[in-house]
């Protein structure tokens, strides 16, 4: 044990000297430090958002230092109570969350919800996309819709966990075309990699997920995109919308940031200013473009209203799916 510890110490000391990023301030520092709370495990969408924000805020000189804490599980409903109970009043805390958490709060009948934290801003969005294996007989969304109408249970869908955004979108599509939603043959996978493998291996009829999950596979021609859930076509994505193809469903999975409960108005204003400055920075704009996110920035008040609307909408969908 002794040896192991000494060895570990030496190496950690060497390694830790490295991540200290150079700070070249070209903007005014708004906060000394900011601490991100990510209610998901490292590697996922919220985590990437937090780490991108951390990077942008530091390189743009908006904050002195930043840290990320992950408390993953159950669509964020494991982390949320912790953020509410342990982070209350801490003016340097920012939780990254999104639409997925609203669905999870409803489906898990969570005792806490997003009205107990302080909305700061909606940041980015991502469109959902329906894809099929390259061997699939479905060429357009209509082909898929026709099959869905003929025998709902024969069309199998691969996507994320039950009650998540992928499942909700699939349910909305089935409902819009008049198929029996309770017969939807939705196969839930826990990680993006597994769902992609099922589609690549032609194990399911179609797949549904965020565009970022599939974009590289689509670009490589390994799978075919049939339609996206966005309101209108998106520059750089050569895929028609559901609406264009006669399926009246629009859906955007958004992510935003929240401050802990009970923070002072002054702290709230500072955090809002920090996020606003970050969104307007060229670094952030470049990241958004690079990662093919949609910029759906909404400041605090508009964001709070959006959350209320989404709560009602998602509750309705989950009830028809039998999940709420």
């Amino acid at each position: 044990m002794k040896f192991d510890r000494r060895q570990a110490l030496a190496v950690l000391a060497a390694a830790a000297a490295l991540p200290m990023t150079a700070r070249f301030a070209h903007a005014e520092q708004i906060l000394e430090q900011v601490r991100f709370f990510v209610p998901a495990n490292p590697g996922g969408g919220w985590d990437q958002t937090a780490r991108t924000m951390e990077q942008v805020m530091r390189t743009a000189g908006l904050v002195g230092s930043a840290q990320v804490t992950n408390v993953g599980g159950a669509g964020g409903t494991v982390g949320l109570p912790q953020f509410i109970n342990q982070w209350g009043g801490q003016g340097d805390g920012l939780m990254v969350s999104g639409l997925v958490m609203i669905g999870a709060i409803i489906a898990n009948k969570s005792p806490v919800n997003l009205s107990m934290v302080t909305p700061i801003a909606r940041l980015i969005g991502e469109t959902e996309v329906i894809v099929v294996p390259k061997e699939s007989p479905f060429q357009t969304l209509q082909d898929l819709v026709a099959a869905l109408k003929a025998d709902t249970a024969a069309v199998t869908w691969a996507g994320g966990s039950a009650g998540g955004t992928d499942h909700i979108t699939a349910g909305l599509v089935a409902k819009a075309v008049g198929a029996d939603v309770t017969k939807l043959a939705y196969v839930a996978y826990s990680g993006g990699g597994e769902a992609q493998a099922a589609i690549l291996g032609n194990q399911v009829s179609c797949g549904i997920s965020g565009w970022g999950e599939f974009s590289e596979q689509v670009a490589a021609g390994a799978i075919r995109a049939l339609g996206i859930s966005a309101e209108e076509r998106i520059a750089g994505i050569d895929v028609p919308t559901f609406k264009e193809q006669g399926v009246d469903v629009t859906f955007t999975n958004w992510r935003g940031v929240f401050a802990p409960p009970d923070i002072t108005d002054e702290d709230k204003a500072k955090l809002a200013a920090l996020v606003d400055a970050m969104v307007k920075s060229p670094e952030w704009q470049a990241e958004v473009k690079k990662r093919e996110w949609l910029d759906v920035y909404q400041p605090a008040d508009a964001f709070a209203a959006t959350i209320d609307e989404e709560m009602t909408r998602i509750t309705g969908i989950l009830q028809t799916l039998g999940l709420a």
Binding site: P42, G43, G44, D47, R51, G191, G193, L200, E216, A222
Partner: peptide, 14 residues
């Protein structure tokens, strides 16, 4: 294939 099939692979990809 660019498929992250374990937590470590997912983080290396990110």
């Amino acid at each position: 294939l660019g498929l992250p099939t374990s937590a470590t692979a997912a983080i290396m990809l990110s």
